[in-house]
């Protein structure tokens, strides 16, 4: 080979072969599923709708990862717990409102109250996390900061388990959210609209306010931003706060779809949201939103579309495998994500 002037990296070759094999499997699975015609168009639409709703929650969480990564270059491993803390605390308000009948007589107001509380708690947790765990480690090696984040993640999980108990708490059902419009469940519509409006708000905040500009400046170049008079500490805190608000809202939206919360609920969505952030290109805010939607749809459609065609029983059990596999594949083949990274210095 070398004589031919071809320099093939052996390990790279193997990786590509594995990748192509997986792609072939996906194609074969898809074709054979579609040939059997097991699912009707209506069912496929339901899968996609559920995927979009779920994906928009991932998108909201992913924003926290992507913004913090942009500013600090740190994977805030504990962000999943920021999400959990809001949803878990919001349960108590939702429950209280359900008991005194507020939720039925005044559903929109109560929903807003729960969202506000959840967002406030998540923001508080995110700010505390930044202040206590990460601030001292800004100049430390990445491994040290990442291990701190992992430790903080477990500390938060088990703190909430200790505080509120380890059981699963069931959110009250809201009467007016039952049923469906045009064949689409109302909850899905609410979640999607909620997520989209948060995304638009965030976009306006980042583009049009002074603090938004400061956040962009710090993600571009910390030192120069500081020289230009940006208060870096405040800006980083603001970034965490914005991520916290998004995660808090995501927590309530999650509870609207899945109805139940527990102390461990943040872990898997956290990793998936990170996947979404990487998928869209980390540091890239529109990318995170898009990555979330893509991941959500893949995860919802994938088991039925790719796996059942391959003759795998109970394919829904493997939906997390699809998400994790996507994570690994993106990291291998396109670590800069679909829309590309928005980082000042390339960190490959």
């Amino acid at each position: 080979m070398r004589r031919l002037g071809l320099r093939i990296d052996f390990s790279q070759l193997i990786v590509w072969i594995i990748g192509l094999l997986l792609l072939a499997l996906v194609v074969i699975g898809t074709i054979s599923t579609l040939q059997t015609g097991k699912y009707s168009a209506q069912q496929w639409r339901d899968f996609v709708v559920f995927g979009i709703a779920q994906g928009s929650i991932y998108a909201l969480i992913a924003l926290g990862y992507t913004m913090v990564y942009g500013v600090l270059g740190l994977i805030n491993f504990a962000h999943g717990e920021v999400f959990m803390s809001g949803a878990f605390t919001g349960f108590f308000l939702a429950n209280a409102l359900a008991e005194n009948g507020m939720i039925d007589s005044n559903p929109i107001l109560s929903l807003i109250a729960v969202i506000l509380l959840s967002a406030a708690v998540s923001t508080g947790v995110a700010l505390a996390l930044e202040r206590i765990a990460y601030r001292r480690l800004r100049r430390a090696p990445r491994l040290v900061a990442l291990i701190t984040a992992i430790g903080a993640s477990f500390f938060l999980q088990y703190t909430f388990r200790g505080l509120y108990g380890s059981g699963v708490k069931v959110y009250p059902t809201v009467e007016i959210l039952q049923g469906s419009v045009f064949g689409i469940q109302k909850t899905m519509i609410v979640v999607f609209i909620g997520a989209i409006s948060m995304l638009i708000l965030l976009y306006l905040f980042i583009q049009n306010t002074k603090m938004g500009k400061a956040i962009r400046a710090v993600s571009e170049d910390v030192e120069t931003a500081a020289l230009m008079g940006v208060d870096v500490n405040r800006t980083i805190s603001a970034t965490f706060a914005v991520g916290g608000v998004m995660a808090g809202v995501a927590g309530v939206l999650y509870a609207i779809i899945f109805k139940q919360v527990n102390f461990f609920m943040g872990f898997i969505p956290g990793i998936k949201a990170f996947t979404a952030a990487v998928l869209g290109g980390i540091g890239n805010i529109p990318g995170a939103a898009m990555g979330g939607l893509v991941l959500g749809i893949f995860e919802s459609v994938g088991p039925s579309l790719f796996l059942e065609g391959l003759g795998i029983p109970a394919a829904y059990q493997l939906k997390d495998v699809i998400a994790f596999l996507m994570l690994v594949l993106i990291l291998i083949f396109r670590p800069t994500g679909i829309l590309g990274e928005r980082l000042a210095t390339k960190r490959v």
């Binding site: 206590i132 765990a133 480690l137 430390a140 040290v144 900061a145 291990i147 701190t148 992992i150 430790g151 903080a152 993640s153 477990f154 500390f155 938060l156 999980q157 088990y158 703190t159 388990r161 200790g162």
Partner: peptide, 11 residues
């Protein structure tokens, strides 16, 4: 809980 705290404090 203690493990998490230990990791953070150690780091």
């Amino acid at each position: 809980l203690v493990y998490g705290a230990v990791l953070v404090v150690m780091m």
